[in-house]
Every structure is written in C-alpha cells, then in structure tokens.
Amino acid sequence: MLRRLYPRNLPASAIVGTLGIMFVLKALSGGLALYIHPRYTTLVLICGLLLVVAGLLLLALPPLPLSGPMLVLPAIVLVLALLVPARPLGANLVPNKGLAPGGSNALIARWQAERPSDTRVWTLLEWTAAIRQQGAASLVGKPVSLKGFIYRDETLGPDEVYVARYVVTCCTADGTALSLRVKAPGAASFSTDQWVQVDGVFALVEIDGQQIPRVDGTLTPIETPRSPYLYP
C-alpha cells in the first residue's frame, strides 16, 4: 500500500493542495479584492477547501497518468501568485480599458440605480453616472470628495491630472476605468498611479470649445486602498 502512495502522486497532490491553500488564504485575507468581485468570496473559499481535501485524497490514489505540462502549468500559477506582487489595474491600462465615451449608459444604469443626495459620499461611479444621466450642468458647484489614482494623457493643462478608478463587474478581465479631470495646486508633483484623495468643487470648463467636467480642489496622497476597485 505504501509503495502505491509514494511518490507518483506527490507533485499532483502538492499542487492541488497548495492551490487550495492559496484560494483559502486569499479569500480569508481579503486579498481577493485585487482580482474578483467580493460576491465570489464564498465560492472561492469553498473551492479552496475542496481543493485541499482533493489534494489529500490524491495521495490515496494509484499513480495518475499526468503529463509534464499538466503539472508544470499549475505550478507556474503558484509561482506567479507567490513571486509577483499583486498590482491593482493601474494607469498603464486606462487607455485600453477606459469607459467608451460613446455609449455605455445602459451599463452605468445597471451599475448605479440610485444615488444618495449628499454628493460628498459619491465615488467616481456615482459621479460618472450622474454626469451621464442628469447632465454635468446640474452638478456645477456641488462638493466633491473621492479617491482614485493619478492618470495622465497629453490633453491635460498645467496643474491638471485625471483621477481614475476601475469598476469591476466580475473579475479584473472586465475592469473598466472611470476618470474625472482634476485641477489642483501642485498636481504635477504627483506621480502617475499614486492614490489620492480629491476634495473640491465640481465645475464645467471650456477646453477647445467643449464644456468639460472638472473638479477644482486639492489632492492629498493616500495609501492604495485594500479594495482598490469599485464593485457595483
């Protein structure tokens, strides 16, 4: 019996078990917030526990006919999860994943059904929805207080940056970046991807003959939030 236990299924068992432990730890530590919507936490936790049990059971099985790649690829996943620091989606992907300017109103309507009347608790999600749904003009002068990371493109004026944040419907693969233009003293000194707290007032300014929403106020550097995405 012992000869059948060892050593053929040991790598497979170790991989499955470690994957399971990784899932459980990520689910319990809140680390999942970097990857997927919190509504899946329980699912991932159950999946992790099942994998741990399966990993142990594998030891009791006769040798499995597994090829090299079948073992190497999951091992690579573990190495990636261990070695590569988890980096929330950031400024470099905004051009790829920015909200399409033309027509995402239906999507936003799904994300955001109702908004509290106090605009100081609004996130970028509420602001984007409000600008799309009720028009930017009705929001001029309202107080703004929100978090995001710095993003830049070539259209910005002096002391201007974009403050952006991703909305994740399901997992990072579907992340969509929302952003607002912000004018603040010393904005140029903030590095791209730095997380900031924006406090100011909503305004409409004319840039190249177009009315563009902008927040005029201040930027304060903050730590990257534990849950960097907005989950509608």
């Binding site: 997927i36 999946c47 996943v77 988890a86 980096r87 990072t172």
Partner: peptide, 22 residues
C-alpha cells in the same frame, strides 16, 4: 509594472474560472 498588471488580470480570470471548472 505592465507584467504585474498582466499577472493580476490572469489570476483574476483563473480564480474566477476555477470554481466553474471544478
């Protein structure tokens, strides 16, 4: 940083899909 973003996106897909694969 790009590669770290890539790994994060990949792990998002993987973690999301694995329960369904099971």
């Amino acid at each position: 940083m790009q590669l770290q973003g890539l790994v994060t996106t990949f792990l998002g897909i993987f973690i999301e899909a694995l329960p369904f694969l099971l």
